[in-house]
Design a protein around this nucleic acid. Structure first.
Length: 577
DNA sequence: GCCGTTTTCGGCCCGACTGTTTTCAGTCG
């Protein structure tokens, strides 16, 4: 997303928070939140748009358009500055505490002058909340607990952690008597890169036994809430898991509802309202008669709203409803479309499995081709040499004759140095079937230098794929700063594919970059970057990320037949050389 | 504050659970 759009998104969300804290009209609050989402999802840089062009964005009217224009003209917005002076930043911070929302935060500030989490904790410990309306002993306890959670975890976990937990829970609950269906939903089903809590849905006539089984799971550290229809628990690692139980007749509507996103659900429910229907997790109902229309499958629910079934990774209110109405939903790439993996390692460098072991595991996955791409010598710690690389190539050629049905490609993962140069001279690079090139150091260069560095790598006639473009490690290392539009244009111009790296702490490039790059005509390679046999299976997270970026099989070079792939790997700039 | 094959005014998605309540507000998703 353009940086300006990100700034405006944050500004509008902040103002929405400030309005809700001051008790402003809830619909007005939602209008600002909706506008924030609309700006974030808008492809053009909003700082370059006139007020009239801004108003053309759905959800942005004249008032918000004027505020955005004011922001870019003066660096601030008067009414937002004014709201900031009335509500200290610490009061907004209070609403980050679970169970403490805008109303309670404002009451604490008005009655007791509390304007930070520290002050709130201090007030509770000194029993200064006594007699404050709505703050009984249980509320105080919940707030302290919420502060602990906030300080310890920050909340979200990587997708593989959540996925393994969810699959374990679904497997266990599926065996409970009376459970007719069980599945995970929520952001996990949409393949978001990090997960705040896990949503599990079960279908059963009597919810009692499955709720009891859920509370009794070994992984439960704390039961947060438990009722007839919904139970929430927290695991020892601090991850919240919600279980909802519905009758089987409601399965489709419930799955649609609990998959979200919230913004997508608002869109679908609005469509229902316009059709004189009411959509809830229990089904699609006729408003006048209250009669149930459909709810058994998601397909039925969407169909009755006049839509085709929308794949979960698209359900972010990023234009999927409009595309569905036009009949232009993309036919998303699937794991089964992949014919091979183009970025993998062995124990010749930092992998932990041998070449033979990795190939055996790859063949089991049914791949038609497979590339070995160990590190090149400039990552000195990997101790690569020309001789070792050539010996590996010879071994790969031998094994290639032995494997029926899976062709082996010999490649390497080059290191893009701060100037955009890579490890070997052109003559040596020409001997590889393909080259991935990635940034492994100097992550804090200036934006201009980084951009030049990446464009230069694209222009190298032997570089076929840019590996983990931004270098980010979720929760640990920030992405490099570059003019990515410039890089995407260079990728498209030079025939360099952009990697979707499937490692759960990378997922690099991410969904928003994919959406942008695709518009420039960039092609992608979904790779495992496997360093072990187990890592090969992580490719499903890369595929999920690619789906969130609206990619079809045709956008992804490792779904192509080998002949088409080989043609792509011979870059225009290398032909005839 | 936004928006319009019902509308330029009057709507705006819907339900579960908790805590502090004598019937419901606040929070969450």
């Amino acid at each position: 997303m353009p940086r300006a759009n990100e700034e405006v998104e944050a500004l509008l969300n902040e103002y929405a928070d400030l309005l809700s804290i001051t008790g402003g009209d809830g619909f007005k609050v939602r209008a600002y939140e909706k506008a924030a989402r609309a700006v974030a999802g808008h492809q053009e840089d909003v700082s370059t748009l006139s007020a009239k062009q801004l108003r053309a964005i759905s959800g942005v009217g004249s008032s918000i358009a004027d505020k955005i224009a004011e922001y870019f003209a003066h660096g601030q917005v008067a009414v937002i500055e004014e709201a900031r002076t009335r509500i200290p930043a610490g009061v907004r911070e209070l609403t980050e505490i679970p169970t403490l929302g805008p109303k309670k935060a404002m009451l604490l500030y008005e009655q007791l002058g509390i304007a930070s989490i520290d002050q709130l904790v201090d007030a509770i410990q000194h029993e200064r909340l006594h007699g404050l309306k709505g703050f009984g002993p249980k509320t105080a306890e919940n707030i302290l607990h919420g502060v602990d959670l906030l300080r310890s975890s920050g909340g979200r976990v990587l997708i593989d952690v959540a996925m393994e937990l969810a699959e374990d829970i679904v497997a266990q609950l599926s065996t409970v008597d009376g459970v007719e269906r069980c599945a995970y939903a929520g952001s996990l089903r949409r393949f978001r890169e990090t997960i705040g809590d896990v949503d599990i849905l079960a279908a059963a006539e009597d919810s009692g036994p499955v709720m009891a089984a859920f509370r009794a799971l070994d992984l439960v550290a704390e039961v947060i809430a438990s009722g007839e229809k919904k139970t929430s628990i927290r695991t020892a690692k601090g991850l919240q898991v919600d279980l909802r139980v519905v009758p089987l007749e409601s399965w489709g509507a419930a799955l649609q509802y609990f998959t979200g996103s919230q913004a997508h659900n608002i869109r679908t429910r609005e469509m229902a309202v316009h059709a004189k229907l009411k959509l809830s997790e229990y089904g699609l109902f006729e408003v006048d008669s209250g009669e149930l229309i459909v709810s058994r499958t998601e397909e039925e629910v969407y169909q009755r709203l006049g839509l085709p079934w929308i794949p979960p990774p698209l359900r972010e209110d990023r234009g999927e409803v409009e595309a569905a109405l036009r009949g232009e939903l993309p036919d998303l790439v699937e794991v089964t479309d992949l014919r091979g993996d183009l970025h993998t390692h062995t124990d010749l460098t930092d992998g932990i499995a041998s070449l033979e072991e990795m190939l055996e595991a790859a063949a089991t996955r049914g791949y038609r081709y497979y590339a070995i791409t160990d590190h090149a010598p400039n990552l000195v710690m990997q101790r690569m040499t020309d001789e070792k690389m050539l010996a590996q190539r010879e071994r790969v050629r031998e094994l290639d004759r032995a494997y029926r049905g899976m062709r082996l490609l010999h490649g390497t993962e080059l290191n893009i140095d701060p100037d955009g140069e890579v490890d070997w001279p052109p003559e040596f690079l020409a001997g590889f079937d393909l080259c991935v090139a990635s940034v492994h150091s100097a992550f804090t260069q200036s934006r201009a230098d980084t951009t030049r560095r990446l464009v230069r790598a694209c222009e190298n006639p032997h570089v076929n794929i840019l590996g983990h473009l931004t270098g980010r490690q979720i929760g640990h290392r920030a992405p490099i700063d570059a003019d990515f539009d410039e890089v995407f244009r260079a990728c498209a111009r030079t025939g360099t594919a952009l990697e979707v790296n499937s490692f759960p702490d990378r997922l690099d490039v991410r969904d928003e970059h994919i959406l942008h790059a695709k518009r420039y005509g960039v092609k992608f390679s979904i790779d495992s970057d496997a360093h072990s046999i187990r890592d090969l299976a992580q490719i499903r997270y890369g595929v999920g990320t690619a789906q969130r970026g609206w990619l079809t099989a045709d956008d992804v070079i490792n779904t192509w037949p080998l002949t088409r792939l080989r043609k792509f790997l011979r870059k225009p700039s290398a032909r005839g050389a």
